[in-house]
Write a protein that binds this DNA or RNA. Structure first.
Lengths: 338, 338
DNA sequence: GTGAAAGCGCTAACAC
DNA sequence: GTGTTAGCGCTTTCAC
């Protein structure tokens, strides 16, 4: 193993360019305020030495680290890597580095991670946080916070329009002739679940179709497996699942029971994770713009930093879903038309 | 939005405890060298103020940031989030924070990310790097580097025993009576692909079975779709795919063509991503301990930091796969036994 | 065992 | 426009 070389400092550059350290600093971060000729000399010296400023040292004095933190509940859930990619991509464009932490679905861990990272970042993005409103408000007093997939009074947030997403799903099924639709709910305490239910009931009511909820389940493949038999017992012709993972679990158990999708039962999910396209039959779902949510969260955060004025611009972003019709949604026999 | 409160510094703690800043520093990082009574007073003051040391400032003087960097080619590939989780978990245990970056499968981006992060971390973990050996050696001169899924002369690395993994797959198929096995390769330049092929040929040779390779494909679902027809044309009774994503693509296309898995053709993958269990039929695969690889990489890196002596302990870790027999591998008719 | 002083790499006043 | 000075929060000699 080679010994790691000592990186060049601003003074090395200054010496080589024959100027003072402050001039180097200015040449780099406030071009235009420095003489073009000197600036050129500085730049040349800088990259001949392979100089890159030490962000930590800079942060010590400016109070800005150029880093942001990102906490997700579980990277193994395919929803989150997409969000992370969006955050990364947008952050990279502004030369911001991202600390990532996985809370393992644990509220205590989540809070601990935020506290641990807070000192090293300019702000944090919390995706689908598991902590209470109260705790989140507490965290927001220690550092800048932007939420994804959660709305808390007074905190900036990026959310999906869950009500609308459910309306897309219901309208689609209604157009196909379905008149009785089952619903497999997610975790009881989930913010998204609450809003999806609200949207679902509203849409069903407006269309005059029956809704048959089968309770609350883990938002996982196994949750879907567990829900399937109850769904069947509801004698609906279609089912909407809390998310794609649940929907795919449903598919598996329905297949095992010899129930044909979509002939006997139509299944619709939410999220559009990569797996949904690969499922058999391919899953009809409401695509949520996950990467976009990540990007937007970074933009809100960066905006906050540049202008920490409370009553300034928009601190909320709402993103819209898109129905992806695929193999799994067939036309069920319409009882109304013999 | 609440104004972000100024965090407590070491001087605030010192003042409150009635000691000097240096004593606080010692009490925190070199307990035992300070009087137990004063130490107690310091600790009390510290957590009454909610004090946490500023890692950036500490790093400036100690040269250790307490952070590590992690670069993966594509978080959307389900293999990598598992590795990331392992890294996170192990790093957290040592109070180390993780910078994550996604290179988007781009070698240039990969190198840029390492350079950008290098100053803020004590070392970097590069998972399945896309850069050349030469470039990686160059990076290792700028910062401490540990590789995952890649072996380069002189660099510490965690790898999977690919040869052994392929032997597990082949032996399994041979035991089931298969005598002609197709192989769907991954990217031509991939280090893993090279070693999987070596292992495959060796295992096939030792078992006296025929091997029918069908070329190089993208390590994705669509790669598997693309490979399927060539596999069928090979008239093998079983196929081993470069990884699970490819195998699942195969499954989809085979199904579309009316070829039954496992009755007409047995399929085996590598990795054991979550999706494999959910595939239909469930995919037989060689599980690679992905999280463990992440954990081990952190350990190697931390070890390196504590003892940068070149010729010290082991700088290599090799992890072993495990065969997961599931639905997709059936017994093909054995032509040798009528 | 503890305090005073110096300095990590950088930027922000303040002179010139 | 540019150099000088001071200091961000912390650790580490070096005295005592």
């Amino acid at each position: 193993l080679e010994e790691v070389a000592m990186p060049a400092t601003i003074r090395d550059v200054a010496r080589l360019a024959g100027v003072s350290p402050s001039t180097v600093s200015r040449a780099l971060s406030m071009p235009g305020v420095v003489n073009p000729a000197t600036r050129a000399r500085v730049m040349a010296a800088a990259d001949s030495l392979g100089y890159a400023p030490n962000k930590a040292a800079r942060g010590l004095i400016t109070g800005r680290t150029g880093n942001i933190g990102l906490v997700v509940p579980d990277l193994a859930n395919p929803f989150f890597p997409s969000v992370v990619k969006g955050v990364q991509a947008r952050a990279g464009e502004s030369d911001v580095a991202v600390f990532l932490a996985d809370s393992d679905e644990n509220s205590t861990a989540e809070i601990g991670l935020v506290r641990a990272l807070a000192k090293q970042v300019d702000g944090m993005i919390l995706c689908s946080p598991r902590s209470s409103d109260h705790e989140l408000i507490g965290l927001a007093q220690e550092t800048n916070v932007v939420l994804i997939n959660r709305l808390v009074e007074g905190l900036p947030a990026v959310t999906f329009d869950n009500e609308e997403a459910m309306r897309l799903a219901v309208d689609h099924l209604v157009a196909l002739g379905h008149r009785r639709i089952a619903w497999v709910g997610g975790p009881k305490t989930s913010w998204s679940n609450k809003h999806r239910m609200i949207g679902l009931f509203a849409a069903a009511h407006d269309s005059g179709v029956e809704l048959a909820p089968v309770g609350f389940f883990q938002p996982t493949y196994d949750g879907g497996i567990a829900a399937a038999d109850q769904v069947v017992a509801k004698r609906a012709t279609a089912v909407v699942a809390y998310n794609d993972l649940v929907a795919i679990g449903l598919l598996a158990r329905l297949h095992a029971r010899g129930i044909s999708v979509p002939d006997d039962l139509s299944v619709v999910g939410v999220d559009d994770i990569a797996m949904s396209r690969m499922a058999h039959p391919a899953l009809t779902t409401v695509r949520l713009p996950k990467q976009k949510a990540g990007r937007l969260a970074v933009e809100l955060l960066l905006g906050l930093l540049d202008d920490p004025d409370p009553g300034s611009i928009s601190l909320r972003g709402t993103l819209h879903g898109e129905l992806m019709v695929r193999g799994s949604t067939g036309v069920a026999p319409d009882p109304a038309r013999p």
